[in-house]
């Protein structure tokens, strides 16, 4: 091929690559636009204040009510429960991997974590129904164990691989000299871990937690299958709850196109989007902080 032709191809391909880069912005913009557009249509019919402060989500009743609070509280409750379980377990496992486990043990444990991460959410939800549900029912004497606790435990299992991997990276990134300095003044391994290594890795661990939170808040199938989906205002871990994601999943399939109810689902999706966006931005902030700190 002649050089001129080759250089023309080079320019054309560069343009193509660049276009795909710009399209990525367009996709995020498109998602944003879709949520805003439909939410605006919703807020033209329902007052934003009623939406934010309403304690009833009952869109199909004769007197339809669109209060997001029960959904929001459900989502927060399940996520809070999941993090209560996953954060200590995740940090403990990461510390074990990074500070105690030998090379061989690591080569077994890493695939275990990768396999756990690979289990589809619908399979985890299924196990919530067939194992965890009956187990909780037996302990509490309820008719079924489909409640916030069930969802929280399952979400913890799903968030664990993320938390473990990112936390281990953070612990691993702490310079060896810090640990040596600590041993040098007579601290043992545990004291070094608790007082030196974990505090030094704190921004990275916070980033891990935020990523785990993002994962848990946005998860749909697991909570849809395991939390019972009662639309009443959530009363606690042993009661059925209905998260934002589950509400969208249940109702979007049945709602007529361009009705208030249809727009309402986009409005709660917009809230979900903003929450995950905020969580991810906070996570990113800590990741950057950790990097800077490492570089220093």
């Amino acid at each position: 091929m002649k050089l001129a032709a080759r250089e023309k191809i080079d320019d054309a391909v560069k343009l193509l690559f660049r276009t795909t880069g710009l399209l990525v912005i367009a996709i995020l913009g498109g998602i944003f636009f879709m949520l805003i557009w439909n939410s605006v249509a919703f807020f033209l019919k329902i007052k934003p204040l009623d939406f934010i402060t309403g304690t009833q989500w009952n869109p199909s009743g004769s007197n339809a009510e669109y209060g997001i609070l029960p959904l929001l509280v459900s989502t927060c409750l399940v996520t809070l429960g999941a993090m209560t379980i996953a954060i200590p377990l995740g940090i403990g496992t990461a510390a074990f991997l990074s500070e105690y486990a030998g090379k061989r043990l690591k080569s077994i444990l890493k695939p275990v974590i990768e396999m756990l991460a690979a289990v589809p959410s619908v399979a985890i939800g299924f196990l919530g129904i067939v194992i965890l549900g009956p187990g909780i029912a037996e302990l509490t004497g309820q008719s079924n164990g489909l409640n916030a606790l069930n969802g929280a435990i399952l979400l913890a299992v799903m968030a664990l691989p993320t938390i473990i991997t990112v936390t281990e990276d953070a612990l691993h990134g702490v310079p060896q000299s810090y640990r040596e300095a600590s041993y040098g003044v007579g601290a043992n391994k545990w004291q070094t871990l608790i007082r030196v290594t974990i505090p030094a890795a704190a921004p990275g661990i916070l980033a891990a937690v935020m990523l785990g939170v993002g994962r848990a808040i946005g998860e749909t199938m697991t909570v849809l299958m395991a939390t019972g989906n009662a639309s009443a205002f959530p009363k606690g871990f042993f009661h059925s709850v209905r998260t934002i994601t589950a509400t969208i999943a249940i109702e979007m399939g049945e709602v007529p196109y361009q009705t208030t109810h249809y727009y309402a689902l986009f409005a709660i999706a917009a809230v979900l989007f903003l929450i995950t966006l905020a969580v991810n931005l906070i996570g990113e902030y800590f990741v950057n902080k950790f990097r800077k700190y490492q570089a220093a």
């Binding site: 498109g30 879709m34 949520l35 979900l272």
Partner: peptide
């Protein structure tokens, strides 16, 4: 470039159900 990278990181964090809504709308 920084905007493209930020978009990618945010897209990775968007809940899958919202992709479902986007697919439905688009």
């Amino acid at each position: 470039t920084r905007l493209i990278r930020a978009s990618i990181r945010n897209l990775a964090g968007v809940p899958s159900i919202i992709y479902g809504l986007f697919g439905l709308a688009l």
